[in-house]
Design a protein around this nucleic acid. Sequence first.
DNA 1: GTAATTGCAAATGTTTTGCATACTG
DNA 2: CAGTATGCAAAACATTTGCAATTAC
Lengths: 165, 165
Amino acid sequence: MRMPQNKQQIELKSQVLKIFMEYLEQNELRKTPERFAILDEIYTGKGHFDVEQLYEKMKERKYTVSRATVYNTLDLLLACNLVIKHQFGASQAVFEKAHGFKQHDHLICNKCNNILEFCDPRIQQIQNMMGDLLKFNINSHSLYLYGDPECNKEGSCKTCGKKVK
Amino acid sequence: MRMPQNKQQIELKSQVLKIFMEYLEQNELRKTPERFAILDEIYTGKGHFDVEQLYEKMKERKYTVSRATVYNTLDLLLACNLVIKHQFGASQAVFEKAHGFKQHDHLICNKCNNILEFCDPRIQQIQNMMGDLLKFNINSHSLYLYGDPECNKEGSCKTCGKKVK
DNA sequence: GTAATTGCAAATGTTTTGCATACTG
DNA sequence: CAGTATGCAAAACATTTGCAATTAC
């Protein structure tokens, strides 16, 4: 069951498609249906996802792809900045779409691993200053805040609804 | 070949030993020689290390420990805040000692994976503000900057000395 | 003595790789 | 058609787990 697409989503998808096409052409890579199906699936969904979730979603589509192709395509999309890769915990990587959304960082709930997003211009300032100071051209950063949600008196978590000890 | 220990290092080691002892006692855990040997090795070395490096260093000591014990002990040292765990890239975790050193964040060289440290009070401010705003008690953060070293005209990297394309 | 800890090896889970087949350009 | 991309399975890798032997308390 596919969600009906609104104008904005169609517009966004055509933009990212163009970017991906240009990237593939410039690098003399093939325009395979699997690659486009994966890109479309990513920009159809919302929020963060891991490789397994993406693989499962692809199964529900006409193009069932192998895990290897998912990894391969994600590498390409990383290279042309259409997705961002996160390594929140130890285990598997988490991805999110990167085009058409403003830069943001993440707060991860210690209780339920829920991910909240926030923006703060000071991070850019720190990045610029440290680049100057340490003589580096900083081209990316990752900032994760970890914490426990403030709880109401009944002892359940406001954010994730789970009981907190 | 063990480095001669100076006063400060002896002082630091006795502090962390005390903290670890107390932690073990309070949690009714055993004081095994392996655990103390690992703690000592960590606070003898400097900089960042991964599990494999620590495992190899232990081999050179009187206590050759199994990898399982290294992982187990690192978990304990994490729990009592004597080491910090980093997940810079995708693969294996990187650790560093945490007691007696001021809070800092990390800049990772894209060319050679060398790690530089820096401090900036604004990170604490961001942490406090976002905690308030999103109703979370933030208890930790990780900020990693990634970048390429500015290079001299000969094309070698100032920081890591490696040739840069 | 008894339960926790160790070491080893096997298991796990994620990501990568090799190779035969399929398909893009 | 030539060579790249795919799919599958096996390999690689860090980390975790199960279990018998050992050891702290």
